[in-house]
Write a protein that binds this DNA or RNA. Structure first.
Lengths: 82, 82, 82, 82
DNA sequence: CTGCCATTTTACCGGC
DNA sequence: GCCGGTAAAATGGCAG
């Protein structure tokens, strides 16, 4: 049987704790985002549509990056937002 | 017709940009996590098992917190139920 | 061009109808569950707490099954990690 | 303090077990549905699109039922399936 | 009507 | 490069 209390276990523990730490931060950000959506909604915006806009902008962004290899700067910095 | 270039549009734009900013940060963290897994793997750990460990620890953590929080009377008498 | 009214379309139709049938049954069960909660409430039980109990029991069940299934060596030595 | 081992607790236990039983059946159906999608996919259908079709048909169904109060039988029994 | 929770859908990641 | 499975996002539904 391997020595489970040895160097390898320490390294494993370290990796796992680093991951867990980062996942906590990630969750905090996710919560922040939820808060923003909640606030947006409370001010009368339609969250579902906001998500759609963001999705579209992300896609456009991806497109743009792919096209920049070919094209000069034609696309505006910010999509007009409806 | 409402003025679509007015205050509301500005607020919407602001909310959306805040969300997008946070999502970028979130993605950065996700990438960091991926890096850790990659490194772990390169040192011989089984990524799949690492994920399982983390999942288990998260579940245990959640259990504990929820158990402690309340249902202090009902839980012990009812839980076995077998 | 493929023959859209042919074998493939029949198979697709069949799959879809099977899914729809099962979803109807599923919905019926969901309704039954709703009825039970309604009855419970009418007899004085707190539905929210009932749901919590059920959730806890499901989590415990899941934990137990996953714990038993394996990681028999790693878990005890690593889990505390405190 | 209430008698936690008394009649009320029995009733609660009964309700909870009934719910749990039904939820098991519901889960079984959900698994069956997943199986069908898996099989569909293995035969070359696009699951994502199948879901869309089913969603549309459900919406049409809802529409139809709402309109039947006004209209005679004009809508066909089965939407053509693409 | 609002917030919460369950379910469902989508996206991702590692393995083959 | 696909596939299976797991985690995250999103939608829908229910209780208050």
């Amino acid at each position: 049987m391997v020595e489970t209390g040895g160097i390898a276990a320490d390294a494993l523990r370290s990796f796992i704790e680093r991951v867990e730490r980062l996942e906590e931060e990630k969750k905090a950000l996710a919560d922040d985002i939820k808060d923003i959506y909640a606030e947006s909604k409370s001010v009368g915006f339609d969250v579902k549509i906001m998500r759609q806009i963001i999705r579209l902008r992300k896609m456009n962004e991806a497109d743009r990056q792919e096209q920049e290899s070919f094209l000069p700067i034609l696309t505006p910095t910010l999509m007009p937002l409806a």
